[in-house]
Design a protein around this nucleic acid. Structure first.
Lengths: 164, 164
DNA sequence: TTTTACGTACAGAATAAACTGTACGTAAAA
DNA sequence: TTTTACGTACAGTTTATTCTGTACGTAAAA
C-alpha cells in the first residue's frame, strides 16, 4: 500500500467535492476532476502528469483537456525548454464558469428558436394546403407560440445575466 | 406502413426540438419527451397512452413520470369515473422550469459548501498536529478559500434570481 | 368474496458513454 | 538525415445508464 500524505488526502477530498459542483455545469466526471486538479495544484501540467495523478490514460486526458480548452476553462501555457504541452486552469472561477455556461445556454436557445420558427412556417403552409383538421392546427399553433415565448424568455434572461 | 397525418408529423418535429431544450435543464431524453408530449397535446394522459404514443414500456413511463412529478413539472389529475392515474403538464413553462432549476442549484451549492467547510476544519486540525508541510497547507487553504467563495457567489446569484 | 385491472419493484437485456492501447503523423533532438 | 518523443485518431473494451418483461401488492369492479 502506497503511503499517502495527509495533505494529499485532503487535496483529494476537496477535489471530489469541488468536481461535484463543476459537474452541475454539465462537465463530465473526468473533465471536472481535471479542472479541479489543475486548479488546486495551481501549476501548469503535462498530459502525462495529469494522467498519472488521476490514474487515466493519456488519450483520455488529451480529449478531455481539449474540451476544457474549448470552454476556456483551461489555457495552454508555453515554457521555453519544455517540449510537452502544458495546461493550466483559468483561475477566475466565477467569471470563467459563468461565461462558458451562459454562452452555452444562449447558443442553444437561439438555435432551437430558429428551428422552431422553421417548423412554424410548416404549420402555416399546411393550413393553406388544407392538409388537415383546422382545430388541430389551431391547437398546435397555440402550443408553438408558448414554446417560442419560452425560448425568448430564456434567451433574454441569460443575455441579461451576461451583461452583469 | 402506418399512415401518419400531417399534423402528427409536425407535432413530432416540435416535440423533438422542444425536448432538446428541456434537456438543457438536466432532464433525460425520455423525461423531456414526456413533458413535451403532455404539453403539446394539452390533455391529461394515462401511463398507457403515453407509452403507446412514445413507444416505451409502461414501466419506463411510470418511473419517468414520477421524476417529473417530483420536479413539479407535471401534476396528477383526478377525473371521476376514470380508474387510471392521469397526468398533465404544468403549463406555465418559464415559471415551472425556473423554479425547479434554481432550487436544484441552490440545494446543490449549499450542500457542497457545507462539505467543503467540513474539510476546511480538517486542514486546521492537520496544521495544529503538524502533520505535514506548512507551505503545502498554506497553498491548500488558499485554494479552498477561493472555492468556498465561488460557491457563495453561485448560491447568492441563484437565490437572487429566485426572487425576481 | 372473487375477479380483474392498475401501478411499480426488481432482475436482466439493450443501448450509450467513457476509457484504453495501438498505431501513426509530426516536429524536435541527435 | 536519422532517431526519438509527443499528441491524437480510431477500434475495440469496459463501465454506466436506460429500458423491458415478469411478478406482485393493492384497490376497484363484479
Amino acid at each position: 500500500m502506497k503511503n499517502i500524505s495527509y495533505s494529499e488526502n485532503i487535496t483529494n477530498k476537496i477535489m471530489i467535492e469541488f468536481s461535484r459542483t463543476i459537474q452541475l455545469f454539465g462537465l463530465t466526471s473526468l473533465e471536472a476532476r481535471l479542472y479541479a486538479y489543475l486548479f488546486l495544484t495551481n501549476e501548469a501540467r503535462t498530459l502525462d502528469e495529469m494522467g498519472e495523478a488521476l490514474g487515466k490514460s493519456k488519450t483520455a486526458i488529451s480529449t478531455n483537456i481539449r474540451s476544457l480548452l474549448d470552454l476556456n476553462l483551461v489555457t495552454q501555457v508555453w515554457k521555453k525548454g519544455v517540449r510537452k504541452d502544458l495546461y493550466a486552469a483559468n483561475n477566475q472561477l466565477f467569471k470563467a464558469f459563468m461565461n462558458f455556461y451562459l454562452n452555452k445556454w444562449i447558443d442553444a436557445t437561439y438555435h432551437q428558436k430558429e428551428a422552431l420558427e422553421e417548423t412554424s412556417k410548416m404549420i402555416e403552409q399546411a393550413k393553406k394546403d388544407g392538409a388537415g383538421n383546422l382545430t388541430e392546427f389551431a391547437n398546435l399553433e397555440l402550443g408553438m407560440h408558448e414554446i417560442l415565448e419560452f425560448h425568448e424568455e430564456l434567451e433574454g434572461m441569460f443575455k441579461k445575466m451576461k451583461q452583469d
